[in-house]
Write a protein that binds this DNA or RNA. Structure first.
Lengths: 116, 116
DNA sequence: AAATCATACTATAATAAACGTAGTACTATG
DNA sequence: CATAGTACTACGTTTATTATAGTATGATTT
């Protein structure tokens, strides 16, 4: 038997299990959007725009679209006078409450909104 | 008494309390970096690079610099042979464990690493 | 009827963030 | 002397986010 020199395929590194979540959460404005939607049953586009204070409407639009595609946000057309659109969290979206809670806790403890 | 027409200064909207945290966490790679650093006492630049699989070294460099400035990551020069650099979490960084835990939980429940 | 307002966006051009690729500077090892 | 490991930086390109303006619809005011 001859041992031939060959390159061992190196064992795959363990993947980062939070990567898919980080892909969603680690985008600008996502956490804030979820934060506000957790706080009220539904919000309008302009309302979110105001609350986020300074987000670009194009960015907000694409972020909401992405969150809808991911199953986190629900978009509802309301046929009232005047007709408008309401955004709310799905069950999947509401389940981010634990994450938001942890972030809020951390933020209050370490970033200290009181003494900036 | 005459009622003069005047514009009420509208009450300031309540700020988003997680904004400072979102500013840090909501950047690409931050969550993954913290995830891996929580898992081992310290890591090297190249090690992180490998684990993150595909991050640009410039981006990783600036992200680590930012995390160091924020007080989350500690950079230590090791004068051994060969000399190198080790990155580890500060107490503030380690306190992100709750956040990572919540994200991991959510990721496992809803993004289902098993059936992508 | 015309102008104005509210709502929910889209369009455009500019800047900032992240990217791929390559290269640098150091030490050690073959 | 060439190659390898470590920790980056440099360069030019693509993608994301931004500021600002504009569109489309329907209702309300003049």
């Amino acid at each position: 038997m001859s041992m031939s020199l060959q390159i061992e395929p190196r064992p795959a590194l363990p993947l980062c299990p939070i990567e898919p979540a980080a892909h969603i959460i680690g985008q600008k404005w996502t956490l804030q959007i979820v934060y506000f939607l957790l706080d009220s049953p539904s919000m309008r586009f302009c309302e979110l725009q105001d609350r986020l204070g300074g987000v670009n409407p194009s960015t907000l639009s694409s972020r909401l679209k992405m969150l809808e595609e991911e199953g986190i946000v629900r978009r509802t057309q309301i046929s009232a006078i005047p007709p408008h659109v309401e955004y709310s969290l799905t069950e999947m979206g509401r389940s981010l409450e634990e994450v938001i809670r942890a972030v809020t806790q951390w933020s209050n403890t370490w970033l200290c909104g009181c003494c900036s």
